[in-house]
Design a protein around this nucleic acid. Structure first.
Lengths: 239, 239
DNA sequence: CGGACCATTGATAATTGTCAAAATTCGTGG
DNA sequence: CCACGAATTTTGACAATTATCAATGGTCCG
């Protein structure tokens, strides 16, 4: 709960909304109207935002931090389906359709969210139809990613998959540097393993091997440097 | 090309539309209006309806037969993403969003389709907003299935997955019989393998083993009998 | 600095993939 | 309706990859 006291409530709201792609088509006036509707929440690393089976009555937009959305098997194995970060949203399925949460959502870091209740969300869609278009587009992206992930886990070898996840993270979290691209990994080794459908130790081994080959450089547990993304793309397989 | 000559064109259209869940909320009068818009096509087993990367300008609804939607890796491995059959549709992504086909679609049997052009589809959505709701619902189902499939391939063992696909097919294609449930498999062994992300031979071995254990009975290559679905569910894992 | 947590490495086992051959099934045409 | 050839499936033997178990090493944070 480290709310930065020096930021006024209004600034936070503005900030929040500007980060959200689905609201990005609206102008300042429209944003002001929505401002009041948004309800903020904060979570600590490890907190669970939503449990599988929960009845959800709001759409959650990530304002700060990132979360993992996953399913567990009865014997405790975890499959991560999505990593949501700033600007991403979830819970819309439970408003459009009459179903409870199909995955658990857990904070990977300190997280701040913007929440819109079912009613508010519906009013928003009604007032600003262009938002619906953005949502459909984002759901399409998500479906494409799931389809690619399914192919990845289904028929591609572990090296391919590791390469793919590095590219995915480089695009989403990478910062260009004179030495290459620095990635702040949102997931631990175990998290990466659970995202790729392999064992923790396998990820360690592959990373070690890639470091030996000069493909990556481990700066810390949660930070790696990619000197040459082309080489990673070669490993991922053009597809 | 075995069009049943004894059925008039009108009957075929009616038949088509009645099979399509997304149109099922419309009454006869409304259906009649749509009738004229639909364009029919026929394909033989093995024909490709859509290639990855194709520009699609219509939504395709399966009227008869079934198809597989899949992605290929550069080394020729195939991952089946969906099996679409009577009443299912595809291609909507390419109308809602500006993208080309993300998967190849191939006929598993003789197939008849009902096609709606982009413009016709948009008019339909405009005239009958309840169709949009059905589509959103179906896309939600599809997303749920993809999420489950990802979990399946990611963390569940092959026996679990075989069990799951048998249940899936039993629900979709199963016919109750005094001896149990008879399933007309839409996919060959190789198809099942490419759906589950395992090798052809592995599917054969697991089926043989299950037959030895009395869990299934192979009636022919494309037809199996499940005497007791509960036992299959036990293998699939309750989840 | 200490302790908890996370990551790495090694040794081994288990599962599944691969290759090859045999058996079965299917569809076609006689 | 049967027979033939093609296609598919099954089975076996073996190899490869990855999971598992166990121990060590490293990192982060109060």
């Amino acid at each position: 709960m480290t709310t930065p006291r020096f930021k006024c409530k209004k600034c936070m709201d503005r900030l929040c909304m500007h980060k959200v792609p689905i609201l990005s088509s609206l102008d300042i006036e429209d944003l002001k109207k929505i401002m009041g509707l948004i309800h903020h929440k904060e979570y600590n690393k490890g907190d669970t935002l939503v449990f599988v089976g929960d009845t959800m009555d709001s759409v959650v937009i990530i304002n700060e931090g990132s979360v993992k959305a996953y399913k567990n098997t009865s014997d405790g194995r975890e499959q991560i389906l999505y990593v949501f970060s700033e600007g991403d949203f979830f819970g819309e399925q439970n408003l459009f359709r009459n179903q409870t949460a199909t995955y658990t959502v857990e904070a990977l870091q300190a997280v701040k969210t913007c929440n819109l209740s079912r009613k508010q969300f519906q009013e928003l869609l009604y007032s600003f139809p262009e938002i619906a278009v953005k949502i459909i587009d984002e759901l399409g992206n998500r479906m494409n990613r799931l389809e690619n992930a399914l192919q990845s886990i289904g028929v591609r070898n572990v090296d391919n998959r590791i390469g793919s996840i590095l590219i995915e993270f480089a695009e989403k979290y990478g910062i260009k540097d004179e030495e290459g691209i620095i990635i702040q990994l949102p997931l631990s080794r175990e998290g990466i393993a659970n995202y790729l459908g392999v064992a923790r130790e396998t990820v360690s081994r592959k990373f070690s091997q890639m470091e030996n080959d000069g493909l990556i450089r481990s700066l810390s547990n949660k930070e790696i440097l990619i000197p040459d993304l082309d080489k990673i793309e070669a490993i991922a397989g053009i597809n």
